[in-house]
């Protein structure tokens, strides 16, 4: 077979030639780091509950503390090393969201504090807010239209 016969054959050939990610190792690391981050959150949550704080506030406190830790580690140039090791394990928890806001803020500091830091802060995380908030409003609107627990069980 001649690999450069057509774009199709070349694509197939390249897929075969390109090395694959070590997916088992990556998944194992993602599992335990991700699990650990969630468990740290759970411990903070439990401490808050023991202090008679209501459940919603406990959740918010967990988010703020984990975001704070993540921002701190990003600022110390450590988070990217954790991310390289853990992949989705540090990306998918709220720590990854915080990292995706803090890292462009640091990166574009050289373009000034207003248009650089302020303007570029949401280059990576912006879509998360756009889609998350839009989805939540749509969920709310659907809830108004059907107004029934059978469709929205919450």
């Amino acid at each position: 077979m001649n690999p450069i016969e057509s774009q199709e054959t070349y694509k197939q050939y390249v897929d075969k030639k390109s090395p694959n990610s070590p997916i088992l190792k990556n998944c194992f690391n993602a599992f335990w780091v991700g699990g650990l981050i969630c468990t740290i959150g759970q411990i903070i949550f439990n401490i808050c509950q023991e202090r008679q704080i209501d459940e919603t506030s406990c959740g918010t406190i967990v988010s703020i503390i984990l975001i704070g830790i993540s921002a701190f580690l990003t600022g110390l140039n450590i988070f990217n090393k954790i991310g390289k090791f853990a992949g989705a394990g540090s990306l998918i928890p709220i720590t990854g969201f915080a990292n995706s806001i803090v890292s462009p803020a640091m990166e574009y500091k050289s373009e000034g504090y207003v248009m650089g830091v302020g303007g570029k802060m949401f280059t990576v995380a912006g879509p998360v807010l756009v889609f998350g908030i839009s989805a939540s409003i749509i969920v709310g609107l659907i809830y108004i239209i059907f107004n029934t627990q059978s469709i929205t069980l919450v």
Binding site: C38, A88, G89, L91
Partner: peptide, 18 residues
């Protein structure tokens, strides 16, 4: 908490790699 959080991250990792 550990297991469920870990499994959600594995789903993400498979999406990244595959």
């Amino acid at each position: 908490c550990f297991v469920v959080g870990g499994i959600i991250c594995i789903i993400g990792q498979i999406l990244i790699d595959k």
